[in-house]
Every structure is written in C-alpha cells, then in structure tokens.
Design a protein around this nucleic acid. Structure first.
Lengths: 153, 153
DNA sequence: TATTGTTATACTCTATAACTATA
DNA sequence: TATAGTTATAGAGTATAACAATA
C-alpha cells in the first residue's frame, strides 16, 4: 500500500499530522455543511457574521468590526455595500469624526438575525459534524486558543 | 460593554462558539505562521501538499490524488502545470489507459521534498501555535475526525 | 455512453496601492 | 502627517460547463 503504480489507495503519510492541511479539510467540510443546511437565506457566511456583530455592537465603527473579524478594509466596504443594499444595515457619519462610519441594523436586519441566529451561527451543527458533544466543545476551545481569541475575550 | 456608541470593545457573543468562524480564524493564523516561517522556498501550501503526496504515491493517477486532497480537476491541472514547469514533477500516459496521467517526482522534486519535509508539513509548528503538545495532538485528532479522515485511514 | 483531463469563464476572498476627506 | 474609508486592480482558490481524447 505504499503507492507505486497502483490506482488504489492514496497515502497521505504525515500530512494527516499537518495542522494547515487538516484545517483546510475541516473548513471545506464545515462550509459544505453550512451551505447544505440553509441554502435559501441569501447571505454568505461572512455577511451574516458581520450582520451578527453589528447587532451586538450597534454604532460601532466599521473599521473596528473589520479588524476584529480580520476582514480587510477593502473587502469590508464591498461586503457592507451588499448588506446596505439588502436593507439589513444602515451607516451613519458621527459629527465627532466625520471620516468614520458607524453601523446599525435596520429593523429588517434585526428581524433577519433573530430568525436565523442559531442556524447561521451553526451552534447546533457540531453534533452533525460527526463529533460528540464533548469533542465539539473541546475542538471549539482549542480553535479559539489557536486563533488567539482567549486573550481578547 | 454591550456596544452602543462606543469605540472600545467589539463583542462577538456566540460567534466564539461557531465552528465555521473559528475555523476561519484558525486558518488565517495558520497561514500567517506558514508563510512567516518559510518565505523563500517558492511553493504555496497546496503545491507542496501535492508534491508530498505524489512522492508517497509514485505513478498514482492525477485524478485520484486530486480527489483525495479535495482539489477540483480544473485547479489540479493548473497546479500541476506549475510543478512540472518548476521541474519537480513529471507526468506520463500509461498504455493501459491513454486518457489518464500518472504522476512522479523528478530527482529535483524528491530532493525538494526531503529538504523541506518537516517545515512545510508544519509538523513542528504546533508548539508555536500557542498550544501545548497534548493540546496540539488533540486538535489534530478532532480536526481529522471532523474532516472524515479516520474512515479513510 | 461514460470517464480523464483540459480549457475557458466567472465569482469570492484576499492583497495592494492610490485616492478622498477628514483629523 | 496620520487616519477612515473607498476605489481599482490583481492574484489565488473554487465552481461550472463545454470540450477532446479515449474507454
């Protein structure tokens, strides 16, 4: 089974111990699950993430939210244009600093978040991801630590 | 600190329990570490992954390797064109099925893999990823299970 | 007819730099 | 001078479909 002119098994070797490789596979899996579960709502994961965080932080500056979510400024601009066009988010320029943009949910945006909260945050998905309850919780903890989320929480 | 017209903390709420969000952050972190550690070798992560697997499975069909790594056929074609142009991989058409392409490392390719093996598989990176030895091992195990790697191993 | 791989097109996310308007 | 956000452009990865050659 060590390759060599066969069509059968593709050996991965130490690749199965590579964090980068496993993260990629896991993310593919998670995205498939994500899209498979709610195909019709019309928002992409990143868009709902921003919507959710705006809801939690009304009036927060656009750039602060982008930094926290590790979204680049240029991307944030385009993403918000879609959310504003969809009528889910409004922006306003505060008089204290007229360069900046503060973000708010519209009534429709709040309603959208309320309706799709748990499914779009995939909070109940772990069980369907072939992990047990405890394993899922431990995975989330380790990923958070890896991502440096703890020092900021 | 629940938002509302301040510039200070950006709350994430249950987002910190979203598998999809944490996978994204973790992957960003891992890629930064990846690129930070070996900036000069000239291969992207996906390219080295293919190189590695070809080395483990000489003569394997291009499509089988792509399937296993979850790389789409069109992408695999372009990725291989770069590896062939770099002199690291050769392809040959077997007489048994002249539609297919079998992949091999060149001597240069084998040498490249030998030289960059552990650093490009990020096998020693976990310690630098702010995780302890045991935590890193557990994270790898859980990610592998999530990605469905176990049934195939 | 089905399969292997290629080409072509497009869309998302990301990266970068140049730009504006404000500070 | 520096900062907040925008615009424009390009690259990487992915998705899709049409295609050629072979089975």
């Amino acid at each position: 089974m060590t390759g060599s002119e066969t069509d059968h098994r593709v050996e991965l070797g130490d690749l199965t111990r590579s964090l980068g490789f496993l993260l990629r596979l896991a993310q593919l899996q998670a995205f498939e699950t994500f899209y498979a579960r709610m195909p019709t709502h019309g928002l992409k994961p990143g868009e709902f993430t921003v919507l959710w965080v705006v809801g939690l932080n009304p009036g927060q500056r656009q750039g602060n939210i982008a930094d926290r979510l590790r979204i680049k400024p240029a991307h944030m601009t385009k993403l918000l244009q879609r959310l504003v066009a969809a009528g889910l988010v409004t922006r306003s320029v505060p008089k204290t600093d007229r360069r900046s943009m503060r973000l708010y949910l519209t009534a429709e945006g709040r309603d959208f978040v309320d309706r799709h909260r748990s499914s779009l945050l995939d909070l109940h998905a772990p069980e369907r991801y072939a992990l047990g309850e405890e394993e899922a919780a431990e995975l989330l903890r380790l990923l958070g630590k890896l991502a440096g989320l703890e020092g900021q929480e």
